[in-house]
């Protein structure tokens, strides 16, 4: 009698153990933990960064662009268009440098800019020569010339395109979805025509003016790394701390 009871109890044991789950297999690894969600920055006590990019040393002289191959381009300018790999003013201010925040913004997210950027082909040169814009922002690439241009853009992390614009007034609208500095744009018909497009996933960038001046405003207080990029001189970086409601002063100096 007694044994039978024990047997009945024993029969239940496997069930109970089954419910406990298997301990004999090693634990599988958990997935990588998700990053904290990015939020829009608080701009109530925003500061900024301003300064100038200078060029030390002798800048190579500018040369006149030979446009004779296309009569239209030749006649579009009364004076020769000058071009140099490094464009400076008398005081050494370096133009066409893209200054941008390269780190320190990881916890923020930004809306796409609502205005449109414009890259114009006018008189067989690109205007501007260096364009900076945001991801998701629309850029209008316009042909203001009455001759054939093609816009051959070969980025490394955005889709490439190469479109012909045979008629004056034609426009192409493009949006770049990933951040990339210094995407080259060129016209194969007029080989002197080149431009650089830089795309950022935030609004904190500035292209230096003819005197080398740049400014980045509405930057939330914090520690940042600023990067300056030039098409031939490469990049330089600097750390900067932005205090509440203050504009930090930063200057870059490129050498030859």
């Amino acid at each position: 009698m007694h044994l039978r009871k024990i047997a009945a109890l024993a029969l239940l044991v496997p069930f109970a153990a089954a419910c406990g789950g298997g301990e004999d297999a090693p634990a599988a690894a958990a997935p990588a933990t998700a990053e904290p969600a990015a939020t829009a920055p608080d701009l109530s006590n925003a500061g900024g960064v301003a300064g100038a990019v200078m060029f030390a040393g002798e800048a190579p002289g500018a040369e006149a662009i030979q446009m004779a191959a296309d009569p239209f381009c030749q006649t579009a300018h009364s004076d020769a268009v000058m071009s140099a790999p490094v464009m400076t003013d008398a005081a050494g201010g370096l133009m066409n440098v893209v200054v941008h925040v390269s780190s320190g913004l990881e916890n923020y997210s930004f809306d796409a800019a609502t205005d449109q950027a414009i890259l114009d082909q006018s008189g067989c040169v690109y205007d501007p020569h260096v364009l900076a814009m945001q991801t998701g922002q629309t850029v209008i690439i316009r042909n203001s010339d009455d001759t054939l241009h093609n816009v051959n853009v070969q980025p490394s992390s955005n889709p490439a395109f190469n479109q012909g614009q045979p008629l004056a007034g034609m426009e192409i609208e493009k949006i770049f979805d990933s951040a990339e500095v210094g995407i080259p744009a060129r016209c194969d018909v007029h080989p002197w025509m080149g431009a650089f497009i830089s795309v950022f996933d935030h609004p904190y960038f500035s292209v230096s003016a003819t005197d080398g001046a740049f400014s980045i405003a509405q930057l939330p207080p914090g520690d940042y790394v600023l990067e300056a990029w030039h098409e031939t001189l490469g990049t330089m970086t600097q750390s900067v701390t932005v205090a509440p409601n203050e504009t930090a002063s930063v200057s870059f100096e490129f050498g030859s």
């Binding site: 093609n150 816009v151 070969q154 490439a160 395109f161 190469n162 479109q163 012909g164 045979p166 194969d188």
Partner: peptide
């Protein structure tokens, strides 16, 4: 042209 030969200098006229 880009689809057939990425990076070609031949522009696309008809998008």
């Amino acid at each position: 042209p880009q689809g057939l030969q990425p990076g070609t200098s031949m522009p696309q006229f008809y998008t």
